[in-house]
């Protein structure tokens, strides 16, 4: 009884405390940066924009807070939450603890799309990098789905098709960069490939935020359908779940969320793969708790990692995808070691 109660209390604490932690993280993260702004200055700008009284900073300084730090921090939180949720869904539905949002080939498709725009000039300047990335992501996902369904439609076929697509699109990306890009373009593309939130805008926050929010709502409202997959899809079917419909709905949803996230942030690894495992260690495997917990942990994690990535090596900036792995892997190793006796 005690372990159960402990887990429930812990979950309750986590779910009440975590939104506060997310809010505090965002508030804290925007006070950090290379520009010489005090905490009071920063909140003065936010207060100004929210109509709480004017800020006495210069317009450039205000811009740093309102147009650079704040959207970037919010976007980090949104991407972190979204990637973690996608990881939970894919790991549960594909019954594969190694599944993550990129297993469906989405990220490499996105990179090919982005590179086609930036390097090859596809679309003649009418399409932005993120549009290209989004289209590439969807194309790759469509290829994976067609390949998987033609080869039998089972989850292991889906994972194999995803691996094939990942290889193909990575090769295409390298091919384009290798044959057509100049040094400047290569550097820009590489930075994006490694994951970066440095181009975040309020527009990105709006688009990405609404897609991820919609995704969260759908996932939360189907949480126990995901539970039903614990013993495989036949077992789910005997529990009254429409397996084909659930799988299609959730796969398309994760593809859409991942495509939108990748199109604004590049390929940020680690979050979708590892944070669901951390969340399971904290609250157990029931999706009604696991999904919100993963979202909150993902948001807090990426907010702080991105803050570290943009400040630690000042004036250089580290691609956030590099930072997630550098900071995340040792943290994860610690958790693994602590839980080895469970």
């Amino acid at each position: 009884m005690t372990s159960r109660r402990l887990a429930l209390t812990r979950a309750g604490l986590l779910l009440t405390a975590a939104p506060v932690v997310v809010l505090l993280s965002v508030a804290g993260a925007i006070t950090v940066g290379p520009s010489d702004l005090s905490t009071a200055d920063v909140f003065g700008v936010v207060g100004d924009r929210l109509g709480l009284g004017p800020s006495d900073l210069t317009l450039i300084q205000q811009g740093i807070v309102w147009d650079l730090r704040l959207p970037r921090t919010l976007l980090a939180g949104i991407c972190g939450a979204g990637l973690a949720i996608c990881g939970v869904i894919l790991q549960s539905m594909l019954r594969n603890p190694l599944a993550d949002p990129f297993v469906l080939g989405i990220s490499s498709g996105a990179s090919t799309g982005a590179v086609s725009i930036v390097v090859l000039g596809v679309g003649g300047g009418t399409l932005g990098l993120s549009t290209g990335a989004f289209l590439g992501a969807l194309a790759s996902f469509a290829l994976v789905m067609v390949l998987a369904s033609l080869s039998g439609g089972t989850t292991d076929r889906l994972v194999l098709a995803g691996i094939a697509a990942t290889q193909l699109f990575s090769a295409l990306t390298s091919f384009i960069v290798f044959t057509a890009a100049d040094a400047e373009q290569t550097r820009g593309v590489l930075f994006w490939l490694l994951g970066s939130l440095s181009a975040a805008s309020w527009g990105d926050v709006a688009v990405c935020g609404s897609v991820v929010l919609a995704g969260l709502v759908v996932c939360f409202s189907t949480a126990s359908w995901l539970d039903a997959f614990a013993f495989g899809s036949d077992a789910a079917a005997t529990l009254g779940i429409n397996v084909a419909l659930t799988r299609a709905l959730l796969l398309v949803l994760t593809a859409l969320m991942t495509a939108v996230i990748v199109s604004v942030s590049g390929a940020i690894g680690f979050v979708g793969l590892v944070l669901p495992h951390l969340a399971r260690a904290l609250v157990g495997v029931g999706h009604r708790l696991l999904l919100p917990t993963s979202a909150l942990i993902g948001a807090v994690f990426l907010v702080w990692v991105d803050t570290a990535a943009r400040t630690l090596l000042d004036p250089q900036e580290l691609p956030v995808g590099v930072a997630t792995a550098l900071i995340g892997v040792p943290a994860f190793a610690l958790i693994l070691l602590r839980n080895r006796h469970r």
Partner: peptide, 25 residues
Amino acid sequence: VSSDLDLLVRDVIELGRIPRRQPWA
């Protein structure tokens, strides 16, 4: 049947309640 998830026995039995309640309840 098998699962890779570390379910409690209680979690396993509770799966049986899925057809009897709303997915978000």
